[in-house]
Amino acid sequence: MSTAHRWLRRFRPRPAARLRLVCLPHAGGGANAYRSWVSVLPHTVDLVCVQYPGREDRFGEEPVDDMAVVVDAVAQELAPLLDRPYVVFGHSMGSAVAYELARALRDVGHPEPERLIASGRRAPSDAPPGRVHLADDDALVEELIRLGGTDREVLAEPTLREAVLSYVRNDYRLIERYGPFPKPPLSCPVSVFLGQDDPEVDAVLARRWSQTTTGSVDVRVFPGDHFYLAPQREQVVSALVDRVDPSLSRGSGAWPSTP
């Protein structure tokens, strides 16, 4: 069945896994940002990646710049997969989407995630409103270069530049107009991951994610900048699994199949 109009990607489904890991990409990113995680995750973890419209295999679709619309669509499609414990991980813009997704799922009767892992972003109530989405293309390009997530060669080619900037601008419009929804905080633990040279957030600001939950909060700093995830992939996945349940790495048991 075609997945062109669906919000979730499972590159290597593991139906017997004990845990589902739901990953949400950064502004301008897509599900393929997490594809390589499949090879380093233990077989006890089923990777589920969110695919925003307007990029990768959804390139022909209109992007969505409304946080509530994105969260509602992902929540509806994710609901049938919440038959076992799950963790939500989001990087940069994806951290805010992950937070609102966890609360939306809770509000319609699903359990909260075992843990929310927010990467490379300040707490939702701390993130200042931005105006990057209103800037011209050259300024938007400079912002992408500043953060280090896009090759200059891609942005130098006119056709590619136009395509990339269309959905990047959309995502900046989404996140820069977003403010935390007026709902109670989570109760699950929250972990915050970041690169030590990230220009957007540091360890002090990261601890302010304590505003988002009545549960515990911990912070882990990795070598690298805002896009530390790629070079630190194995260390990030290891830290994630250790925080959720170290026994997952030992492959102890599998989710019981339906009789």
Score class of each variant (00 low, 15 high):
Ser2Lys: 11
Arg6Cys: 09
Trp7Tyr: 10
Phe11His: 12
Pro15Phe: 09
Arg18Phe: 02
Leu19His: 09
Asn32Gly: 11
Arg35Met: 06
Trp37Leu: 12
Trp37Asp: 08
Ser39Asn: 15
Val40Ala: 09
Leu41His: 09
Leu41Lys: 01
Pro42Asp: 11
Val48Phe: 11
Glu56Leu: 00
Asp57Gly: 03
Arg58Val: 11
Gly60Arg: 11
Asp65Gly: 02
Val70Arg: 01
Asp72Gln: 08
Ala73Glu: 06
Ala73Val: 08
Ala73Asn: 08
Val74Trp: 08
Ala75Met: 03
Leu78Glu: 06
Ala79Trp: 05
Ala79Asn: 03
Asp83Lys: 08
Val88Met: 02
Phe89Asn: 03
His91Ala: 03
Ser92Trp: 05
Val97Phe: 00
Glu100Asp: 01
Ala104Met: 06
Ala104Val: 08
Leu105Gly: 04
His110Arg: 14
Ala118His: 04
Ala123Gly: 12
Asp126Gln: 15
Pro129Val: 14
Asp136Tyr: 00
Asp138Arg: 13
Leu140Pro: 01
Glu142Lys: 15
Glu143Gln: 14
Ile145Cys: 08
Val154His: 07
Pro158Tyr: 12
Thr159His: 12
Ala163Ile: 15
Val164Ile: 15
Ser166Tyr: 12
Tyr167Asn: 09
Asn170Pro: 00
Asp171Arg: 10
Ile175Ser: 14
Tyr178Thr: 13
Lys183Asp: 13
Pro185Gln: 08
Leu186Ser: 07
Pro189Cys: 10
Asp197Lys: 05
Ala203Gln: 01
Leu205Cys: 03
Ser210Arg: 15
Thr213Gly: 13
Gly215Phe: 07
Pro223Asp: 14
Asp225Asn: 11
His226Met: 07
Tyr228Ser: 05
Gln232Lys: 13
Gln232Trp: 10
Arg233Ala: 14
Arg233Val: 14
Arg233Cys: 06
Glu234Trp: 00
Ser238Val: 11
Leu240Asp: 12
Asp242Ala: 06
Gly253His: 01
Trp255Glu: 05
